[in-house]
Amino acid sequence: MANTELTELERDVANMIIEALELEDITADDIEPDAPLFGDGLGLDSIDALELGLALQKRYGIRLDSDAEENREHFASLRQLSALVAERRSD
């Protein structure tokens, strides 16, 4: 169980992740906002990354640049991803 409170937007983004990837037995509160989404943290892989890219566009209308490095930063953690959504959402 995470000990950090999620903001409303973070919870929304967390739910998008859970739904898009059909993560079982996980709720938004189980995701640590600052833990890495990929690798050690939530344990997502490169295919999940593709799926998240599509989900992000569908849900928030965000078009990502193809700069891999920049996207890596945006997708580093739930908090960072939420920051991207706050800044760029066009839904």
Binding site: S46, G53, L54, S66
Partner: peptide
């Protein structure tokens, strides 16, 4: 190895 969320949108 650059395949990521951005590429997914491009491919889509």
């Amino acid at each position: 190895s650059d395949m990521g969320p951005g590429t997914a949108q491009r491919l889509q």
